[in-house]
Design a protein around this nucleic acid. Structure first.
Length: 363
DNA sequence: TAGGCCATCTGGTCCT
DNA sequence: AGGACCAGATGGCCTA
């Protein structure tokens, strides 16, 4: 197969072009993609050519006029032509022409070209997605966000930033993190939490749920999240625990955060073993456009839940740390659920909006 | 082994 | 007419 590929000058440039299509990809991925490209340019398309449908063959017939002289048309169904109206209606549309070897060859070339274009298109799309991965609040080389998670996180991030700009207030840490993680899977939530130096273990515990503590008065309209906390139906977070007056409570935010976070700078957060009051739990999708939506995507995201702590991290503040630690308490990181720190990229070089955000949190 | 994620092929449709 | 875009199908890889 490879020999055919490299002997085919029309295919070779594509393979070379895409051997390094994504700069951000590691070598393993590159070779993987190379292999796939090589394979699909040869074996894949070759094999699948055999299963091409009749309609495509018919389509091929329409374009080639130079072969008309050799095979004008074939009346495969009613070749005799005189009694077709008796049994079945006469077929309309372009008459089918027999596939000559030349047509087959041209068809293959056209299909290969189309496949190449499609591959290019998808590579461009992936490239853009990689760029997006680099500008959302967390980025890990070893634990790359999936496409769908990247889009979800980006959407949440945009909305969070919009809320900050709209309100002009320093957002509540927990609300911010919750906003970022709306509808994200647990692994992604952990990744984001790790990137934001949060403690996923502390985000929600029985103690907190049972205490039914107070909510922080975050800047984000968390009441707009229509989905229930997954824990509400669990013994850890019984419905109706604590106050019901807060919109978060009404919609499934079932634990206290304010009790410890409101007193920003509480020393107890300095302990790595801190297991104190926790932050709200939330579940479901980000609601900006989701309300009333019944799309499969939303329903799929609906099953995700978010269980992690909105406790400020103790690492040096990067753009994604947002400086929470400066005004709030700090905590150590439990690392079992988060990727190694060195794998994560905090985007120091990123957009000025980060400076703005930092300014918010450092006020 | 099932499920998630991904890359690719493929045919249809729309646009330029 | 050719290319872009899209969605379905397929198969590979990885992980819990």
């Amino acid at each position: 197969m490879l020999t055919r590929l490299f002997s085919d000058p029309s295919l070779l440039p594509d393979v070379q072009k895409y051997s390094g299509w994504a700069d951000s990809e590691d070598e393993d991925s590159k070779t993987k993609h190379e292999d796939r490209d090589n394979q699909d340019d040869t074996a894949g398309s070759e094999l699948r050519e055999d299963s091409r449908t009749q309609s495509e063959h018919a389509e091929d017939d329409d374009e080639d006029d130079d072969d008309d002289d050799e095979v004008e048309e074939e009346e495969e169904d009613d070749g005799d032509g005189e009694d077709t109206e008796g049994d079945r209606p006469k077929k309309r549309g372009p008459k089918k022409r027999k596939m000559t070897p030349a047509r087959v060859e041209r068809s293959k070339v056209r299909r290969v070209k189309a496949n190449t274009r499609e591959r290019t298109r998808m590579h461009d799309l992936n490239s853009a997605l990689d760029n997006l991965r680099k500008v959302v609040p967390c980025y890990s080389k070893t634990q790359k966000l999936s496409k769908i998670e990247t889009l979800r996180l980006a959407k949440n991030y945009i909305w969070a930033l919009s809320e900050i700009l709209r309100s002009g207030k320093r957002p509540d840490l927990v609300a911010y993190v919750q906003t970022l993680c709306k509808g994200l899977s647990q692994p992604t939530t952990n990744l984001v939490a790790g990137c934001l130096q949060l403690n996923s273990r502390n985000f929600l515990t029985e103690q907190q749920c049972q205490d039914g503590g107070r909510y922080s008065s975050g800047s984000f309209p968390m009441h707009s999240y229509p989905y229930q906390c997954a824990r509400l139906s669990s013994p850890h977070c019984p419905p109706g625990s604590g106050s019901n007056s807060h919109p978060l409570r009404t919609h499934g935010y079932c634990s206290a955060y304010e009790s410890v976070y409101a007193g920003s700078g509480s020393p107890e957060y300095n302990s790595p073993e801190y297991e104190g009051p926790q932050s709200p739990c939330a579940n479901g999708n980000f609601s900006l456009k989701h309300q009333g939506s019944a799309s499969p995507e939303h329903e799929k995201g609906y099953h995700y839940s978010m269980h992690y702590s909105g406790l400020p991290g103790s690492r040096p503040t990067g753009p994604h740390n947002l400086g929470f630690g400066s005004s709030g308490p700090r905590t150590a990181i439990h690392s079992e659920n988060v990727p190694p720190y060195h794998d994560m990229h905090l985007h120091h070089e990123r957009a000025p909006v980060y400076d703005e955000l930092n300014a918010f949190f450092h006020n």
